[in-house]
Amino acid sequence: MAHTSAGGLRLHTQRLPGRGDGPTVVFLHGLVMDNLSSFYCTLAGPVSRAGHPVLLYDQRGHGRSERPPAGYDRDTAVADLTALLAALGLDRRPVHLVGNSYGGVLALHTALRRPDLVASLVLIDAQLTGDWVEDMTDTLSVAALGLEHSGLPAQLAALGRRKEARLAAGADALLNHTSLIEDIASAPPFTARDFARLRCPVLAVYGAHSELLPGARELARSAADCELCVLPGVGHTVLNEATDGLCAAVLTRLGARAGAVAG
């Protein structure tokens, strides 16, 4: 099974080949109910077929990676990614980071903390500004409380809803038995000054109905090189519900950048 030991942690990874020696495209999935399969089943194949080597991994506590009790803050996520790239020998040149939702937050934080590691960013409906930290931790806390007190996983199992029961049990383990919620709550929101510090090119792909669009507009105003692509008819679930439009935007961006480097 494809596990890589990174910084003492076993992370589930999947690598897909590219052609030539272009930079690797690294995918960062979203929070709690998400894992690498959402990118594996959407963008990873087309990006690999277009010639770019691909790395997918399950963040700590998610999917088939190890679930330690602590270390769900952004800096530790950057350390996990750095250790993973080193373990795979991918740390000799910058990589492209593609992050969905909270994965976009981690990608952006990585570009701010370790600009040497990042060739470019693609942020997919990521929560960048405003009270989202409070909103999200509130939502997660309510969910955690519900899972703990209702015995929801057991109830679902009794109803024969095995899939929902298993998903709920995974969320319960992460929300009620790790420091994830407090780690996320302790993170300050990004500021225009952060955006202005970004040195790499950024593509931001957002849903036209997304509540998170104002943050993306602020990013596009403040960052030196940010293209904002707004996809019609979709809200936050760009990756799953506007896959074709997103894929076209990402491939155009990666192709153009690869051409620019080659030229």
Partner: peptide, 12 residues
Amino acid sequence: ALESIEFVALAE
């Protein structure tokens, strides 16, 4: 009730 991530592992 296989999850997508488990099918990825099976495919591997």
